[in-house]
């Protein structure tokens, strides 16, 4: 079914679709107001696009991604990946996901953890080792692949996260702040990886606070604020419309008034 979907629409087609999504967090204490993290957003990402998901802290980006991956249930509305409702696990066969804060089984080595995920993706046994070497080389962890993850630095752990997101050669990557915690070179690397994936025709949906980086790699961006999608469109379009760079656009959209002038 998935193959059919993918092959049939290998041109421009909607790979990620969010319909009227609303997510409420209920407080445990009675009588407290409910907390609306996402308030009715609509979004579609086309195949082959790199989509930057922007917004200030607490805007609801992570929550939206959690719904896309089935961690959190929408209060109303729905999401679909490859046309399959996200509540079904099969929707996650062809995606790679990098969580906001990455922690992995610390007692395993990078190699073991990738082998474990490879098993879950049912990657053929003959292919597993070459695939692991490939992604580890990509994120430059090849030389420490046998060390337990607890001995890694924060940035190295972040790269393990990236490696596991790529192990199944996903068609859609969902990355929650992939460059946080990385050094400038590491960031550059991630940008290169995203660029390369784009060239391979993969779709990338990622959130970030690095507007410069977003500007260089993204085709389109969406700007969220207080649970609502305030603005979306091609980067060039937005720049044109607002007559300024992306950072200014962002500040304007979220309604930030500079203290002086």
């Amino acid at each position: 079914m998935l193959d059919h979907w993918h092959d049939g629409y290998s041109g421009m087609s909607t790979i990620l679709k969010i319909d009227n999504l609303r997510v409420e967090y209920r407080r445990r204490e009675l009588g407290q107001p409910i907390n609306v993290a996402v308030n009715g957003i609509n979004l579609a990402v086309e195949t082959g696009e790199v989509f930057g998901f922007l917004g200030p802290n607490g805007a609801g980006k992570t929550t939206t991604m959690n719904v896309l991956l089935g961690f959190v249930n929408p209060t109303s509305g729905s999401c679909a990946l490859f046309g399959v409702d996200t509540r079904q696990p099969i929707a996650r066969q062809r995606i790679g996901f990098l969580p906001e804060l990455t922690y992995y089984y610390k007692f395993l080595s990078a190699e073991e953890i990738l082998r474990f995920y490879a098993k879950i993706f049912r990657i053929p046994a003959g292919e597993v080792e070459s695939r692991i070497s490939e992604v580890l080389k990509l994120v430059e962890l090849d030389n420490v692949r046998k060390r337990p993850i607890k001995s890694y630095s924060k940035g190295m752990q972040q790269r393990v996260g990236l490696a596991q997101a790529l192990i199944n050669k996903p068609d859609l990557l969902i990355l929650d702040e992939p460059t946080s915690g990385l050094d400038p070179v590491g960031r550059m690397k991630v940008r290169e990886i995203i660029q390369r994936l784009k060239e391979e025709g993969k779709t990338v949906f990622f959130s970030s606070h690095e507007l410069g980086e977003v500007e260089t790699v993204c085709d389109r961006v969406g700007i969220m604020c207080a649970g609502q999608l305030k603005e979306q469109g091609a980067v060039a379009d937005l720049r044109q419309r607002y007559q300024c760079d992306l950072e200014r656009v962002f500040l304007k959209v979220i309604g930030y008034q500079p203290a002086h002038g």
Binding site: P89, I95, F97, T102, I120, G161, Q164
Partner: peptide, 14 residues
């Protein structure tokens, strides 16, 4: 707590 459940459930695992 360690959030390892996230990368795990992001795979096709029920």
């Amino acid at each position: 707590e360690n959030r390892t459940i996230f990368p795990l459930l992001a795979k096709p695992v029920t």
